[in-house]
Design a protein around this nucleic acid. Structure first.
Length: 560
RNA sequence: CGGGGCGUGGCGCAGCCUGGUAGCGCGCGGCCUUUGGGUGGCCGAGGUCCCCGGUUCGAAUCCGGGCGCCCCGACCA
């Protein structure tokens, strides 16, 4: 039953004052969700219907590639998490049961499933295998935000593949990747698959699926044939005009000028003609000086990957002790290893002199200091991508990701199999996640207009929104009652019927807010002509459907 | 974790500075009106003013502590 007068569908004229993101405002206004606490949201019936629609797509596409559904607990013993080293993660909720045994709330299910596979898989004959479930995840996020976009509890479709070797993993990964493309296409999203960092999941390779929209928390670098998270993107920099070379570095007095933005204008040079020196303390290695072109920003994840170790910015006292006065440091004469970003082309630059109030001009990498070259800067719009195209940067929501985990979990948890020769080997694993709530939110972010949500038919809470003008007992209501019954016979629960004794403005405004793909309007005017008026939400096109074939006409609009 | 903001009927807000009867709009209930874009009128219900403590004859208002929520940054499988 979906008669507006009978169901819980609390639409609001105004969004909550603290909502910023479009999807946050509209999901609350349209009566899809309500908040319980920071990062904790209740799905009301309409919102839950959309989530279910997404889940149906996920199930179909997973099953289509031979990935089997199962279910694992959220509450888990801490043991396996200690064994994989993930017990230390701050986002992991930790608790004790009544016997004071350490427990966790799962933020992902690698540990649990690998634990089982360690016991169930014995032979190469048991492989490959792909499994998934749709289950609640708990993550103590430092900062939940934007409604349903970043929450502390959410459901996730997480799939896992188990293979005997890297080639097998590559096949499973490709199957999942293709399924992901179909899932996001069916969900009506504009999306990109981008190269990404492996992050806390660990492993040997990863991609993220990104839906561009204003509320996104990620930035993706895009060019024809190229797509990467800016955290790890690489590109050719835009050239910078450098001053004429000098025979040797010369001192320049720069009293009180310690930043690129202060020094560059003073010397009438572009900031790219300066070199920024960033001293960092590398775990187990001590201080290293990273050099970045003055107009560039450090990409911390790229640096971490280049170093292969944890690092932190050096403190002022450490810099003063090992190199020179803060604000005036540079590579020339510095007694620490130097990593030079590849975007610093050969030429003549300005750097700090490692002496008070002094910079050096005419510094040439190689001639005036030794270095190791790395790629650790953040790419910028206009840079040249590997394929030759110009980079554009877009903000995006991460709607899914796929990881080549390799043996990251199977080795610590002892998930092995015997190959044909009787040799015991670790299973090679992949994991593949999608957040249904983010698909819903991203769809709203990308498609909504001034009036409200614009659902694709695949994930709309209802595909048809039938509006009867007039009130109980009126002719239009009786006609609409009949159409509603016929539609239910065809579409089942996929039609909502606004049978309220409310004014036309209220009903039509709510229909636009809720954004179902097809709106049928039964009013006195249309009835006089023997028609109902159908409007498709996405393009606003109106169709006059003869009363006697209104249902057939509606089905036609849904197919088209 | 750093910075900023906010907590007053269901929602959005005013009142606080300068202490004394808690107010407005929307929504909600009843009656009437209206039914092709949130109609109009009359009547009415509904509030521990986030919590604890202090000052005071008296605290939504002043002081102290705490909690919660939002935004920016850091962080983010």
């Amino acid at each position: 039953m979906a008669q507006f007068s009978q169901i819980l569908l609390p639409t609001l004229r105004d969004p909550p004052a603290d909502a910023e993101a479009v999807s946050h405002k509209l999901m609350v206004r349209a009566g899809l969700i309500r908040q319980l606490g920071a990062g904790l949201w209740t799905y009301l019936p309409a919102g839950w219907r959309s989530i279910h629609k997404v889940e149906a797509v996920l199930r179909e596409e997973m099953e289509a590639i031979g990935c089997q559904e199962m279910l694992m607990p959220v509450l888990q013993p801490a043991q396996t998490w200690e064994e994989t080293g993930r017990y230390a993660i701050d986002e992991l909720f930790k608790l004790e049961d009544r016997r004071e045994a350490p427990m966790v709330l799962a933020l992902s299910h690698e540990e649990c499933l690998t634990y089982h596979m360690a016991r169930e898989i014995r032979s190469y004959r048991d492989l490959p295998l792909m499994l998934f479930h749709i289950q609640t995840k708990e993550r103590d996020e430092p900062r939940p935000r934007a409604g349903v976009l970043r929450t502390r509890e959410f459901t996730m479709k997480d799939a896992y593949s188990f293979d005997r070797d890297e080639e097998g993993l590559a096949r499973s990964y490709e199957l999942q990747s293709e399924a992901y493309g179909r899932i996001f296409d069916r969900s009506g999203l504009r999306w990109y698959r981008v190269e990404s960092d492996v992050g806390m999941m660990g492993g040997t390779g990863a991609h993220e699926y990104m839906a561009p929209c204003a509320a996104g928390e990620n930035e993706v670098a895009l060019a024809p044939g190229y797509a990467a998270n800016v955290e790890i993107a690489s590109a050719e920099p835009q050239p910078v005009e450098l001053p004429a070379p000098l025979a040797a570095p010369e001192d320049v007095e720069t009293p009180g000028l310690t930043t690129i933005d202060e020094v560059a204008p003073h010397l009438k040079l572009p900031s790219g003609a300066l070199i920024k020196a960033l001293p960092v303390i590398v775990e187990g290695r001590g201080m290293v000086m990273v050099l970045i072109r003055g107009d560039h920003r450090l990409a911390e994840i790229k640096l971490g990957n280049a170093l292969g170790a944890e690092f932190r910015p050096a403190a002022s006292e450490e810099i003063e002790a090992e190199i020179g006065p803060v604000g005036y440091i540079g590579p020339v004469g510095a007694k620490v290893p130097i990593l030079k970003d590849a975007a610093i082309a050969p030429g003549s630059y300005v750097t700090g002199a490692n002496r008070p109030v002094t910079h050096l001009r005419g510094v040439e990498p190689g001639r005036d200091f030794e270095f190791e070259e790395v790629d650790v800067r953040t790419v910028e719009a206009g840079d040249t991508a590997p394929g030759g195209g110009a980079i554009e940067i877009e903000t995006a929501i991460e709607i899914g990701n796929i990881f080549k985990l390799g043996t990251r979990y199977t080795v610590p948890l002892g998930a092995n199999f015997l190959d044909e020769s009787g040799t015991e080997r670790p299973i090679v694993m992949g994991s593949y996640g999608i957040g249904p709530a983010r698909i819903v939110a991203a769809s709203i972010e990308q498609r909504a207009d001034e009036q409200g949500i614009v659902w694709p038919a695949s994930i709309a809470p209802w595909r048809v929104h039938l509006v009867a003008l007039g009130r109980e007992g009126d002719a239009e209501r009786e006609a609409a009652d009949r159409i509603y019954e016929e539609l239910r016979a065809e579409l089942g629960a996929d039609v909502i019927y606004d049978d309220r004794d409310a004014g036309p403005g209220e009903k039509l405004t709510d229909a636009e807010l809720l954004g179902c793909p097809v709106r049928l309007l039964v009013g006195r005017r249309g009835l006089a002509d023997g028609i109902v008026e159908a409007t498709t939400r996405a393009d606003g096109a109106e169709h006059r459907l003869p009363l006697e074939s209104a249902v057939e006409g509606t089905l036609g609009l849904l197919d088209g």
